[in-house]
Design a protein around this nucleic acid. Structure first.
Lengths: 212, 212
DNA sequence: TTTATTTTTGGCCAAATGGGTAAAAAATAT
DNA sequence: ATATTTTTTACCCATTTGGCCAAAAATAAA
């Protein structure tokens, strides 16, 4: 098996199978995010991807396998940046501001991600096959603890409360998007709301740090 | 048709049909909350309710009708208390503290509610047939604005930011529950976390009010 | 008690839809 | 021209929803 390196508008890909595979993944991601595992039917996926059901199974032997590929990618794409930021050697305030940026920027581009991840985990909480984020938690916590400084005597639960506040404020607007857009006055767009919200959240984070 | 008022262990209900109806609703609520509309099959519902599929259709002519009953009830049961609190004549700080209580208490008893509501709305954002919460929003906002006081010059978007912060901090822990329990050290229970979290959120709310 | 009404069971059906497979056809590479 | 990869077509079989029906059981009314 030899790759051909024919130039292509599809970035690196020359092999036709790669293009098809990518088309499947791209379509499946959009539709799984919209409808969830149970809500998306393979026939609809085939139609929307402009191909037939048999071809889906040629590339992914089952719906389950395809879903896992989508889910893992979605999960990791969100958590990679978060972990990296939290593990960085920034000081407390810039680190948490950075975290807000990472979340908002990622989620503005993928607003459906939070509901998708949370609701699928809710329906089957096994989490096997995903990178075990748990291992990083104690490390992140003690780094934050050091960030805050030894002179202030802050307990671990309080460190976690601070971190979880930042995460809540960053993620919830997207999880609540459908309700939010419904409640907002029609002249305000979700995108507009979210832009000012990001600045507001950073301000709150700074306040919380000051009060520590 | 005459009701009989035979005393019963099922509260007010005497009529058998009401008992059955209640049994269906109760079981359907638990299962829809767990699996969502697409995930729950009528056969499973019948089994878990200890009855026969035919009987489900005797009381609810379709899955859709049954689901709408469950969803509306879930939606209203959460928003009724929230609206009532926000419309009350309490001052700013007690009002928002009360809001935190309402959310946490309701959600401790029904942790699956946020994901259920948000994900089902996400999948079909029509929201028809639900009480139109939108009408109350401007009223709530101007009441909060008055609560804050005329001397402080606070814009409406800032009022909304404050309110939305309270909601985010109250609801997100439950929406994120499956992930959260996975990330927490095994000796901490979700219930335990949530108890201390409620107190923490109230403290944050007070800080935010001070800084206005 | 007898008679009517309501509730419940159980089974079975029909149509649609579900995931998945296999063989042939088409396209591509050797 | 041959082999390999990719795609289509046509299927299979299981499940799903909604529905029907006849009969039994429970309950209420007379």
């Amino acid at each position: 098996m030899v790759y051909n390196f024919t130039p292509s508008i599809f970035g690196q890909m020359g092999k036709k199978s790669d293009i098809t595979r990518a088309k499947i993944i791209e379509t499946a991601r959009a539709l799984f995010l919209e409808k969830g595992f149970d809500g998306l039917k393979m026939q609809e996926l085939a139609d929307r991807a402009g191909m037939n059901k048999g071809l889906l199974h040629y590339y992914f032997k089952s719906k389950e396998v395809l879903f896992r590929a989508i889910f893992s990618e979605a999960f990791e794409s969100l958590f990679a940046g978060v972990m990296e930021t939290l593990m960085s050697d920034l000081d407390l305030e810039p680190k948490l501001h950075r975290l807000v940026d990472v979340y908002f920027d990622k989620l503005v581009a993928n607003p459906g991600l939070p509901i998708f991840i949370l609701s699928e985990i809710h329906k089957s909480p096994s989490l096997e096959g995903l990178p075990d984020v748990r291992n990083n938690v104690p490390i992140i916590m003690s780094m934050l603890h050091e960030n805050i400084g030894k002179n202030k005597d802050i307990s671990m639960p309080q460190v976690f409360n601070l971190l979880f506040t930042v995460i809540s404020l960053s993620v919830f607007p997207f999880a609540a998007r459908p309700l939010l857009t419904h409640l907002m006055p029609p002249e305000v767009t979700f995108e507009g709301f979210v832009v000012q919200r990001k600045a507001y959240v950073k301000k709150v984070v700074s306040q919380l740090i000051e009060e520590l």
